[in-house]
Design a binder for these strands. Structure first.
Lengths: 238, 238
DNA sequence: CGAGTTAAAGTCAATATGACCTTTAGGGGG
DNA sequence: CCCCCTAAAGGTCATATTGACTTTAACTCG
């Protein structure tokens, strides 16, 4: 840091971190990647992966670096967006720490392992975490809650649901993303109509995937469209 | 700041500020409240009002405090929401400074004046600022750009447009908010239908306001609804 | 082959939208 | 006082979208 900065502001400095809410869907549940904290405060507790931002990187770069270091995930293939800043005094017992939360969405990823920092990373179902918020360190339960609501909204207005599906995927796979995140079942026929008539949402590969039972499903890839217009509103919001 | 924090993190500390994008509509133009910077860096340049976050306040409280100190505006009656964090290295020549930008929306407010910090605050049309982005200090042109896009989107999905209108207001007043921010004219009749049939968007006061010319307009107040469902999509987005 | 299952496709009424037209209620000028 | 202008308010209609529902297709298993 520039010396002038330190002189000019005295003690009014803060620790700035990035935290990641990495969501995926596993076995019909929304799951988030957590790490077991190896240091105080909250040593041994579950927390969102994250860490200090370095002075020579952007916030987004810091998020990608922490993603790699703490979870051994290559974030370039994930959907990554800034969720917001959390800086309530008292959210960290060490003093003022402002964290910039990032939201990362991806298909069911290999559970990270190995001798790195990522050794203590694991997937946890969000439903249980939100039911007992004190499980998580800091204000991470609130961050997770905000992230979940953000994702649910994103499904309405964007095509980001496809980011949860390994390609190629069926429309049933895609529908499950909506159903799991919105917590309600959707009419398969209307869902199909909506998705296939939204230009650029999905692209037909021409291939099929045999199902365990029933008619084979056509396989799709993600299309170029990122916005969904008109949006696909959650039933019951009205 | 806690001594432990200072020891534990060494020099990896940042200055954290809040900046405010305060938007209103004046004479058919979107305008933003700017201040002339009184100190380096960018001394004398136009900038968004803002300043350091204190260690004993939340980010939102800091935003409200800066609003009061720098512009003498009582923010409790404004719509205030967090826009996002900006922390690119190099955005401040002093070193790493992370700013949390807040978006504030309100009716045409009295131009702040007097002997306070607010003496150098003034309204500026955003169109010109975005046309020559170097007018603004730091990365404030980008923040302003993001804020404007956020507002345009908010108009689609929320009832926040009413926050721009001093109460009571006419549907013509409200329509002007949309027209100015979206940069296009709307069909008055369809607009009326959409707003009046959206439950809780506006409430009829029973009063009327004579127009300069034409039939008097019914006066409304803001209703309790905050979300607009179904949304009011910008024409041409499709 | 027939039952069971899921994908895919079609039907239809209700709702929302965009474009456009008509009526209403004022003001100002002649 | 009457006519014209203006903007608000209200109505019409074709089209698009949605939700609920039915029908057909394609496969597996027994």
């Amino acid at each position: 840091m520039d010396d002038r900065l330190k002189r000019s502001v005295g003690v009014e400095l803060s620790l700035v971190t990035v935290d990641l809410v990495i969501l995926t869907i596993r076995e019909g549940e929304v799951t988030v990647l957590l790490v077991e904290r190896g240091a105080e405060p909250f040593k041994g507790r579950a927390a969102l992966p994250g860490g200090r931002v370095r002075s020579d990187e952007t916030l987004g770069e810091g998020a990608l670096r922490e993603l790699r270091e703490e979870t051994d995930i290559d974030g370039t293939r994930l959907h990554l967006e800034q969720l917001g800043a959390y800086g309530d005094p008292g959210r960290d017992p060490r003093g003022r720490v402002v964290t910039i939360a990032y939201l990362a969405l991806g298909p069911d990823l290999p559970v990270p392992k190995g001798g790195t920092d990522a050794a203590h990373a694991y997937w946890a179902p969000v439903a249980e975490l939100l039911a007992s918020p004190d499980t998580l360190a800091f204000d991470h339960a609130r961050v997770l809650d905000d992230a979940l609501e953000r994702v649910r909204e994103r499904l309405e207005y964007t095509t980001v649901a496809a980011a949860f599906c390994p390609e190629p995927f069926t429309l049933g796979d895609l529908r499950e993303v909506y159903e799991v995140l919105w917590g309600r079942s959707l009419d398969a026929s209307n869902f199909r109509r909506k998705v296939t008539r939204s230009e650029g949402f999905v692209v037909d590969t021409g291939e099929q995937r045999p199902q365990a039972t029933g008619r084979p499903a056509v396989l799709y890839r993600r299309g170029p469209a990122r916005l969904l217009s008109p949006p696909f509103l959650r039933p019951g919001t009205v």
